[in-house]
Design a protein around this nucleic acid. Structure first.
Lengths: 335, 335
DNA sequence: TCTGAGTGTGTAATCGATTACGTACTCGTT
DNA sequence: AACGAGTACGTAATCGATTACACACTCAGA
């Protein structure tokens, strides 16, 4: 009862495999009578063509590998949805891998995807794999970078790139706190491997300088996890003198920041002001309004990435000049 | 510079393709000298074997299809992590599909996964595809149901099943509210297609009966989305008489419930008590403690599902008697 | 010396599709 | 009547690996 092959269908319908293929793909000429015989055989045998065999012959898998640092982050899920909504209608299926911010795991995924012969790769890199990425690109695998740049180069380094204006966003976010009179600011930063972390932190420093603040900010370096936000707040609360505001450079960490501040019975922004790069879905559960945040547009970034993917896949390896798309944003205040 | 084949490697190392294959798979005998020549050719040509070709020959893709109703729900992400942590070390890669609670989309995914010849399928069904599921199972595709049963049958219907004791959990959850003196309770229910929705709602009804409550609960039927929680609360607040407690039968909807109650300036549980089937990650952001919830154990469910998968894959189509695993839980109170 | 087990390597079939090419028939045109 | 275009279908090569089988050689034990 299992897996019928095209040969069996051909035999059952008393035609050649070529004809069966023609019927199923609606290519070439087939008489109505034969078509019907084939169709009948197809669903009598419950035949499902093997995408494996097809891919081998056609050198096309209709699969797109997506590598993100944290699959449970709504931000990356948003990007994925955007990609899928664009490439899905063209017949492509996404294949996910989460690197968990771990460059080694990311490298394994890149390798795996190449072996699986995905038609293209979307990469939000955890960093540290410039060499592997370049090898793949040289081997002709279409690659679109999202959210994060490679380490070595400041531009997409010859690859398509869809990212955000991190420095500018962080600058504005920090400026808000500064204009509210905060001077001692705790910064919850991500790993230096991630270009987003580096750029956003630079933006904060620039804002401090622009506002004539010379005291060094107190910094916590984490891995973009909720737990990191919690630990950062603990560090800040124990600091002397204690900061009056926290700026968190990633949405997951922001949630941790909020949870820990609330757990300590402090009020936001009364006792501790908070600014977040990225929205916190449940932020409105807070007692009082006043949370500053930058709302990113992951879905739009995803659709744009999807378009770039299709463009590259259509180009079939021909050299295209790399597209770079930078999303800008505004600072918002909750409620 | 692109895609070298095993034939090119063989030529470069001046051996047959069989020998190259033996070197790469460490099977059969190969002399040290030849092995070295081959290895050298492999990385000089930057050769990556084609998983496509291998899969065709070996009838094994090392891919496991995972179909969930909502990929952005941390609950299903937890299950997925559990699965991955068990099957990953055995060389399997997960391939995701989100049905968005849509039976048609789910059917397309089932079909797609069969064509891609995944080695097994994990299904948290949106409902309405009993026929297709059974066809796949008959065709020899190992299938493990998680979280939700098929519609027709009360047991796994001959398939492996990892689920929760929904009726019991909902019974306890509702009982808490009842014991606190609530009589008018708003129930935020999911679609009847989902077995979880049906069973949990039954549990609530049983609790009402057991506590001698005869007034009909006021019910909102949604699709397990956050938006549904919001709409449900609007309905309840407009009802006359207004319920004093809400029980939400799914974590996503619970978040919506909390958000909308807070948005209306009401206190939890003072003005409106809330009980949730499933944890709400950011629940602790609430002003006051008092949220009842059942904490599910998606990760453990995932690992169990992973084990069942491996068992079935190892069995290679031999009939195994179906395993059914039901997780039970306790009611907790936040803070 | 003969035998058989253990090594080392190549030849060719195979997996399940697609597709280039060839053949044959039917018409309408000139 | 000859020709070319359009229609209908089959044969066999092909994609890139794995693997059954065959062959050849080495060496230890009888």
């Amino acid at each position: 009862m299992s897996k019928a092959t095209i040969k069996q269908v051909a035999a059952a319908a008393d035609v050649s495999t070529a004809t069966v293929s023609r019927v199923l793909n609606e290519s070439g000429y087939v008489s109505d009578e034969v078509r019907e015989r084939v169709m009948e055989a197809v669903d009598r045998l419950n035949y499902q063509p093997s995408a494996i065999a097809r891919s081998l012959k056609q050198d096309k898998t209709f699969m797109i590998g997506v590598i993100v640092p944290d699959i449970s982050n709504p931000y990356f899920m948003g990007i994925s949805r955007g990609i899928e909504d664009v490439v899905g209608p063209e017949g492509f299926q996404l294949m996910f891998g989460s690197s968990d911010e771990n460059p080694d795991k990311e490298e394994r995924l890149l390798q795996l995807f190449q072996e699986k012969r995905v038609d293209a790769i979307v990469l939000a890199t955890a960093g540290g794999n410039d060499g592997t990425v370049r090898r793949l690109a040289d081997a002709g695998v279409p690659i679109v970078l999202v959210d994060r740049k490679l380490e070595e180069d400041d531009e997409g380094a010859g690859l398509d790139l869809v990212a955000e204006d991190n420095a500018e966003g962080a600058f504005r976010l920090a400026s808000q706190l500064l204009e509210d009179g905060h001077v001692r600011i705790g910064v919850v930063n991500g790993p230096a491997r991630a270009s987003t972390g580096r750029e956003r932190y630079d933006g904060v420093l620039q804002a401090l300088r622009a506002h004539g603040v010379t005291t060094e900010p107190i910094v916590y370096n984490g891995e973009f996890s909720t737990e990191d936000g919690i630990l950062a707040v603990r560090k800040f609360l124990a600091a002397e003198p204690r900061p009056t505001a926290v700026i968190s450079l990633n949405n997951r960490m922001s949630l941790g920041v909020l949870l820990e501040i609330v757990r300590n019975g402090l009020r936001i922004p009364g006792d501790m002001a908070v600014a977040s790069f990225g929205e916190v879905e449940a932020g409105s559960l807070l007692k009082e309004p006043g949370l500053y945040y930058i709302d990113q547009r992951p879905y739009e970034m995803g659709t744009r990435a999807g378009e770039l993917l299709l463009r590259r896949i259509d180009a079939k390896g021909e050299a295209l000049e790399p597209a770079v798309e930078i999303f800008r944003h505004e600072v918002n205040r909750l409620n």
